[in-house]
Design a protein around this nucleic acid. Structure first.
Length: 875
DNA sequence: CTCTTCACG
DNA sequence: ACGTACGTGAAGAGT
């Protein structure tokens, strides 16, 4: 008996298992990773448990095997390997190589046969063998020395087949498993067996007769007329099936067991693959990486004051805040790093140093930051404007890959291969347990961030240049960050009194509607609870549910509107909802956000969040202040200029997305329509309905408008039918008519999807990217969604590029003209300013001019503007 | 912490 | 046949 242990793995079978057991995961480049990930987990677990001295992973080679000459339809009718899995096999092989494990495949033979041949050899040598597969056929190889592990549900749950276990489970010997397969067949390999004989019958027959051959030698003794008939009719097939199910144990392989020695992984190579595939959990858990992390030396000093000698011409700078809301958060300290040495200065003491403040304001001293907008905003709060922002890790990372999961330095650093930063959560804790750590810990945490920012600059800049996105980052996003920071810091004045009064009115109305609803329902309930409301409407009152959600009846507005004629309670509920929303989100919500000191609201723009390149606005969201309904629109009366007699000035792009579409598709009809400044919805209606301009009814224009929206969103007949409340067929006709009238648009849409499939991403006018891994998915839903996104993102994203460029130009122009006017808000296609009255005339000239010429398109851009005493009046 | 609803472009 | 319009954030309910 040898103390060697041979581990033989069925590579194809395990990769398949992993693939179907785990959800489809992808890395940032859209490569699917779930099979590789699952395979890795299996490998890790089994090696840890078994401690093998020899290892081999066997693969199937090619499509045909010697079994096909016995039976042409062997494995016939099998579904093609999904492309999401096929693309992962090269990585599985690379991974096995990195682990230092031998792998083998052989023309005309399956992985089973390689494993069978080797296990027989090893068995003869008296070596211990463990076979791992997801395929139960392999259990025929079990012997006293050989155990067969078959994966059960999931990826790490395993059933161990020894001869004893097989005896217990089926009452058969391992070799009789072959006979069992011969009789019952195997649907997945298309092995026919004897029709009508399943596992139960097969086992019973084999217990009596021992083997297929013996059974057919003694057919007379088989009880049951039907069964006997079936056996007689399928004798040839049964014998052939047995042959097919038999694993070859003397395949002409060119490796021997002795060559399979396993001497441990090359962890560096393994980690390299993990990084490439973004296996974050494994990387974090890995001792190797942890060691690597420990090995990194960090020279950092905690300073009480700043000495001019530490301030270099280039430095990474990080302001450590207690929480994300940097407008109000406590400043915990400042970290600096020059790549060699790092420093930490507690609290805001650094800002008391003249040397430091001068350094910050010196344009020739380059600062490397992460989230320059936040850094500058906090510094501004301490009376210092940072100049010389040379690098912003957050923005660079976002441009390289829009799907970065979070903005903290640790996450960003990990994303690009730097594991030397602790997560904020591990330092501060989370939820109620969140607290500031002791000084040393805090200092090292912040210093590590500064050092990582320093180290990552070259990596990120190289990637940006490689992708031809350096200009987008350096000339658009980076300068925009400063402008947004100023807008945030300036804030917008909100008249508290107006909101409070509106709130009182709303409360009174709400109470009255509430009473009406209770009376109509015959009982009190929580109107804000869709669950309780559903019970009242669809069970108590007996209305017909139109739509369901995962959790019950849908009570969404579009559903209720269809029921409005059925019962008068519906109208009341819709009104209650509308007013309730105004009161809770906009009155109470906004009141909570007004800063005591200045009576202003300071939203935060998230510049590295959306997948299209738009901004988003939080705490509070000022990009969704009501406008469509008059009752809500009144909220805008509370948004007023910060100085007496000043006015609010708002300018918006008209139809920017359709103009972008005209530009990108170069559709003649659409380009001409904009060049002639036609009403685009009326023009669309004329083409879709084949009527003259004067015969376009308001309904036709409304439908045309919906079609235009649909085109921008990535058209689908279903979506349009829902929006217009028409049948899918009618919607499909509209779309067809549209695409006939605008053939360039159709061509563009087809092209963009094709390009997305080929490259894996789509781009905007300024070369912003969005990766769309799911566009090649075999899942219809995922694929369709990605296709619509491919059509929409270049349009929405290019529109975002344009207004961002306009904001930079606008800020420059206001400065050049020495104006007092302040840019306050951006709402995707509009800019809101506050201005002294004497500057209005100039604004009327320069705002449209600057916005129109931000980026030159094939068609003109059009800007509408208005001004008044409050945001409400800018219409 | 997820789901539903609803506000905006 | 599949079952969806694109992009966001906030509030309230209920697990």
């Amino acid at each position: 008996m040898s103390n060697e242990k041979i581990l033989l793995l069925d590579g194809n079978s395990l990769a398949y298992r992993a693939f179907f057991a785990l959800p489809l995961l992808t890395n940032e480049h859209g490569i699917h990773t779930n099979a590789v990930y699952g395979f890795t987990l299996m490998l890790q677990k089994i090696m840890e448990e078994e401690n093998p001295t020899h290892m081999l992973v066997a693969f199937d080679a090619g499509k045909t095997t010697f079994r096909h000459s016995t039976f042409g339809e062997y494995k016939g009718g099998r579904q093609k390997t999904p492309p999401e899995l096929s693309e992962q096999f090269p990585y599985v092989r690379k991974l096995i190589d990195a682990y230092g494990i031998k792998r083998y495949e052989l023309e005309m033979y399956e992985a089973d046969d390689i494993i069978g041949t080797l296990s027989k050899q090893a068995d003869a040598n008296g070596q211990q063998v463990v076979i791992v597969s997801g395929d139960k056929d392999l259990t025929q190889l079990a012997t006293e020395n050989t155990t067969v592990y078959i994966t059960r549900k999931g990826i790490t749950d395993i059933e161990k087949y020894t001869p004893a276990h097989i005896e217990e489970k089926y009452g058969l010997t391992p070799l009789q498993i072959i006979d069992m397969k011969g009789l019952m067949g195997d649907a997945s390999d298309n092995i026919p067996g004897v029709p009508g004989v399943g596992e139960k019958t097969a086992v019973k027959l084999l217990k009596e007769h021992g083997s297929v051959e013996n059974l057919y030698g003694a057919l007379d003794t088989v009880s049951g007329v039907k069964l006997k008939e079936k056996l007689v009719a399928n004798e040839e097939q049964a014998k052939m099936s047995k042959t097919l199910a038999t694993i070859e144990t003397s395949a002409p392989i060119e490796v021997t067991v002795d060559e399979l020695t396993y001497s441990g992984p090359n962890m560096e190579a393994v980690v390299e693959i993990w990084k490439e595939l973004s296996f974050r959990t494994l990387l974090e858990k890995s001792d190797f990486v942890a060691e690597e992390q420990e090995m990194t030396e960090l020279n950092y000093n905690v300073l009480d004051e700043i000495d001019s000698s530490i301030l270099k011409d280039q430095m990474a700078l990080h302001l450590e805040m207690y929480d994300e809301q940097y407008h109000t958060s406590e400043l915990l300290g400042i970290a600096l790093s020059d790549g060699e040495d790092s420093y930490f200065i507690k609290g805001s003491t650094a800002f008391q140093s003249d040397v430091f403040c001068k350094w910050l304001e010196d344009d020739s001293k380059q600062k490397f930051l992460s989230d320059s907008k936040a850094t500058q905003a906090v510094s501004r709060k301490h009376g210092v404007s940072i100049l010389g922002t040379e690098f912003d890790l957050l923005l660079a990372a976002y441009i390289v890959n829009q799907s970065i999961s979070s903005g903290d330095v640790s996450t960003l650093a990990k994303e690009f291969g730097n594991y030397n930063v602790w997560t904020d959560e591990s330092v501060y804790g989370k939820g109620a347990k969140k607290s500031t750590p002791e000084l040393e810990k805090l200092a090292e945490h912040a210093a590590r961030k500064a050092q990582a920012i320093w180290q990552l600059k070259p990596t990120l800049e190289e990637k940006l240049k490689e992708n031809e996105q350096f200009a987008l980052y350096k000339e658009l996003e980076l300068p925009l960050a400063s402008i947004l920071g100023t807008m945030e810091s300036d804030g917008v004045k909100v008249d508290k009194q107006i909101l409070v009064e509106m709130g009182h009115d709303l409360e009174i109305k709400l109470q009255s509607i509430e009473q009406d609803i209770y009376a109509l329902a015959g009982e009190k309930f929580n109107i804000n609870s869709p669950k309780q409301l559903g019970v009242i409407l669809f069970e108590k009152i007996g209305l017909t549910p139109i739509k369901k959600t995962k959790t019950g009846y849908s009570t969404a507005a579009d559903v209720l509107e269809k029921l409005a004629s059925e019962h008068e309670i519906i109208e009341q509920i819709l009104h209650y909802r509308q007013l309730g929303k105004l009161n809770s989100t906009y009155i109470e919500g906004l009141l909570k956000e007004i800063h005591e000191e200045d009576g202003k609201i300071h939203t935060r723009y998230q510049q590295a969040l959306t997948s299209t390149g738009r901004l988003s606005s939080i705490n509070p969201n000022l990009q969704n202040i009501p406008v469509r309904l008059e009752e809500g629109r009144k909220i805008r009366k509370a948004f007023v200029p910060s100085q007496p007699d000043w006015v609010m000035f708002a300018a918006d792009y008209s139809q920017i997305e359709l103009r972008v579409l005209a530009h990108m598709s170069e559709d003649k009809n659409l380009v001409e329509a904009f060049n002639n400044d036609l009403d685009i919805h009326t023009k669309t209606a004329m083409d879709v309905f084949h009527v003259d301009a004067e015969d376009v009814t308001s309904d036709m224009r409304r439908a045309a408008k919906a079609v235009n929206f649909g085109i921008v969103y990535g058209i689908s007949d279903y979506g349009l039918s829902q929006n217009l409340d028409i049948t899918r067929k009618e919607a499909a006709t509209f779309i067809e008519q549209y695409l006939n009238s605008f053939p360039g648009v159709k061509e563009y849409m087809d092209d963009i999807v094709r390009v997305a499939k080929q490259k894996g991403f789509v781009t905007t006018i300024l070369n912003r990217r969005r990766y769309l891994p799911e566009i090649t998915s075999s899942n219809f839903n995922l694929r369709s969604f990605a296709e619509r996104t491919a059509m929409n993102t270049p349009i929405q994203g290019s529109a975002a590029d344009i207004i961002k460029k306009a904001m930079i130009d606008m800020a420059g122009r206001l400065k050049d003209e020495n104006m007092q006017t302040k840019m306050l808000l951006q709402v995707h296609d509009e800019l809101i300013f506050e201005a002294p009255p004497e500057e209005i005339a100039l604004l009327e000239k320069i705002v449209p001019e600057v916005m129109d010429t931000a980026i030159k398109l094939l068609v003109p851009l059009k800007v509408d503007y208005a001004f008044g005493a409050s945001w409400y009046e800018t219409k």
